[in-house]
Write a protein that binds this DNA or RNA. Structure first.
Length: 431
RNA sequence: GGAGAGGUGGCAGAGUGGUCGAAUGUACCUGACUCGAAAUCAGGCGUAGGUGUGAGCCUACCGAGGGUUCGAAUCCCUCCCUCUCCGCCA
């Protein structure tokens, strides 16, 4: 959520910056909601003050044993109007809140302006795509050929967009996650976290998935009381539970930065993407991801973003997978982000780079929604900045390994760094 | 699933329906004493919104939401959470 003060002070400026990401801020509506809120609130507070003063008088008069019927009658007459006004204030503030919480974050000044993916800016390319002297197969053919990747059985068990791994491929999947976790905890200073995979609506709101993107989530209905429902949701990323660790907290200055890494499954309904990436395990309803989350001092957040990006890149370097880093343009960034780098890995069968990690600085956007604060040098609570990035998406990394390390005979070489996690196995052959 | 206890300021912990936004302790900040520190003493010390050039003033907030009342931290209802015991369970 944006700071309402900024909107009050520089509405046109905010609107202009939001326009670069294709969001038309309804400034007229904002001003109207603000004016309405102000009028009603001021009037209400005047009446409340009157009532409080009179009530206080009643108390004092009663203590002295004086007659209070006159004042009681007077203040009693205030009741109906006040009740009405209080409801109106609540409604006005609610409307303003609803308006604010669907406004996306303002892009950082350095973010390239653009409309779509096509306008993203390549930052660097690392590694060279491998040359093959045979016909390249995609990960589906490779995996099925090895007998370890089975979409049909997954579809029988659940439905489309789920996958089933067996044997060495299942182990490779586990090895990748372990390798990533070990690297980030041992070399990059992250604290490993094991977190709930099901969260409440407040947590989803805190990181920005709700209220705007409910269709992307899997909802778990949960009646809590008489006619009350407080649904749970399957996490679409570990960002949600991990970042919400600091919701409603005021952390001491010296605890910053906080760095967490978590390996979790992620669940996405992928509504509205039915025609895309239907083959293979690129776009699934369930996939594993190792997620990096940082809670940092506002002055350090951009520095830390570069660092976090580097941590994710390390994994690809270690695995020997060619990739490129792209800085997303204003039009392609997610709702909550102020700056985002995507890391795209080379997929030989698609002859292109595909997203495997997304690293973002949310500045205070999530922190404001979550009321995640730290006590600054002056002793005052101040909003933290939050960052996160995939380090990496495990399923897509598996795809990349299969495709980049495929051999003419259909087998797949195991990248060196994964061998200790594979019981020394150097090559995966058909079962 | 059953029974009980409890949720109040950074923390601990009081609070007969009426000068309670909240005692007290502790932590923290400032000052005094001291060569300095500790101890002691004095003062300050929540969040958010409104209003004013400003000192300030006003409003809301005692787990959440409703209700009763001129007035609610305090009474009533619903819910959430925490803890203890029993049962069940990986």
């Amino acid at each position: 959520m944006l700071d309402i003060q900024t909107l009050r002070n520089d509405l046109a400026g905010v609107a202009a910056r939001l326009a670069t990401r294709g969001y038309q801020l309804d400034t007229v509506k904002f001003e109207q909601l603000e004016a309405e809120r102000k009028t009603i609130q001021t009037r209400t507070q005047e009446l409340q003050a009157k009532r409080n003063a009179a009530s206080k008088q009643i108390g004092q008069a009663k203590a002295k044993g004086e007659d209070v019927s006159a004042i009681m009658a007077e203040v009693g007459a205030l009741g109906d109007e006040l009740k009405q006004l209080e409801q109106n204030v609540g409604r006005a503030i609610g409307e303003l809140q609803n308006f604010l919480e669907v406004i996306p974050n303002v892009p950082h000044a350095d973010v390239p302006v653009g409309k779509s993916e096509a306008d993203n800016v390549e930052v660097r390319k690392v590694g060279t795509p491998p040359k093959f002297d045979f016909e390249v197969q995609d990960h589906v053919s490779i995996g099925e050929g090895l007998g370890g990747l089975d979409f049909e059985t997954a579809a029988k068990i659940t439905g489309s967009r789920f996958s089933l791994l067996k044997g060495p491929l299942a182990r490779l999947h586990r090895a990748l996650a372990q390798f990533m976790l070990d690297t980030h905890t041992e070399k990059h200073g992250y604290t490993e976290a094991y977190v709930p995979y099901i969260v409440n609506g407040t947590s989803m709101y805190g990181t920005g998935q709700l209220p705007k993107f409910e269709v992307d989530l899997f909802r778990v209905p949960r009646p809590v009381g008489e006619g009350i429902e407080e649904d749970f949701y399957l996490i679409p990323t570990a960002e949600v539970p991990v970042t919400n660790m600091v919701r409603d907290e005021i952390v001491p200055l010296e605890k910053l930065p906080m760095k967490f890494v978590a390996h979790t499954p992620c669940f996405r309904s992928e509504a509205g993407s039915y025609g895309r990436d239907t083959r293979g395990m690129i776009r699934q309803h369930q996939f594993d991801k190792v997620e990096l989350v940082q809670i940092v001092h506002p002055e350090k957040s951009y520095e830390m973003l570069e660092e976090l990006l580097g941590h994710a890149e390390t994994i690809l370097k270690q695995l020997g997978l060619p990739y490129r880093v792209v800085k997303l343009c204003t039009g392609d960034m997610g709702f909550s982000a102020a700056t985002t780098y995507d890391i795209e890995v080379w997929l030989p069968a698609q002859n292109t780079y595909r997203e495997i990690s997304s690293c973002s600085n949310f500045e205070a956007f999530q922190a404001r929604r979550m009321q995640a604060r730290f006590r600054n040098a002056q002793g005052k609570p101040e909003l933290v900045h939050t960052l996160n990035g995939s380090g990496l998406a495990v399923g897509r990394t598996l795809v990349a390994v299969l495709e980049n390390y495929q051999q003419a005979d259909g087998s797949v070489l195991v990248p060196e760094v994964l061998r200790p996690y594979m019981g020394g196995l150097t090559s995966i052959n058909a079962i």
